[in-house]
Amino acid sequence: MENQHDDNCSLFTPSIITVTVSAVLIAITRVFYILCQSGKPLYPSKSPKPLSTLIVLGSGGHTAEMINVLNVLLLKDRFCPRFYVAAGTDNMSLQKAHLLEENVFNLNGGKGGSTQFLQIYRSREVGQSYITSIGTTFLALVHALWLMIRIRPQVVLCNGPGTCVPLCVIAFLFKVVGVRWSSVFYVESIARVRKLSLSGLLLYKLRIADQFFVQWPQLQRKYPRAHYVGCLM
């Protein structure tokens, strides 16, 4: 009896191992393939269509920098529809986005694409205890996933702080799984002169950002894959 049992096991184990190993190998190959493709520009089609765009607003200074970028970027009707996301505790950022959209609407002579303003749970508030933040982080992740499934953006624009990281990671996973190909752009804050922020470092090192912009030349020298774009403020 015992021998037979052993035989059964030995019959099963190799096949389970083979399946797991090949699944892991396929997944790794896919991730590497995506990583290789990620930094490459999209090839221009004859008539480029507007792209659905997710704009992650940080707070205070981060939002101000993002608005400056959008002021130039939205001159042409290329980023449509637009989804603005800000942390649930941050009302100012969405107000500023509303103001910007009004300006864009007026500039375009009263016609504008669809725009949505959304709020997202923050994984951790300033001063929150680490134990409760495990729960809130999980909640924030689920909420981010739900938003991303609904939006499935083709372009993600972000400039920190932490709120954008889960959204960017999900955008990357969508590429791996094949749900949606997106281009992730990250602009490091002007306040970072010598070192990247934690969110910036993560997105740079993990190669999740397709293009990574910095505002000081010394930072570009330290992180050669970044693009130096000068001050935005």
Binding site: P48, N68, L73
Partner: peptide
């Protein structure tokens, strides 16, 4: 002097294949 977002916008547009 105020900063300028044109270089970023240009890079983003080029990357996405916009003329």
């Amino acid at each position: 002097l105020s900063g300028d977002a044109t270089p970023v916008a240009k890079l983003i547009n080029t990357f996405l294949g916009f003329p």
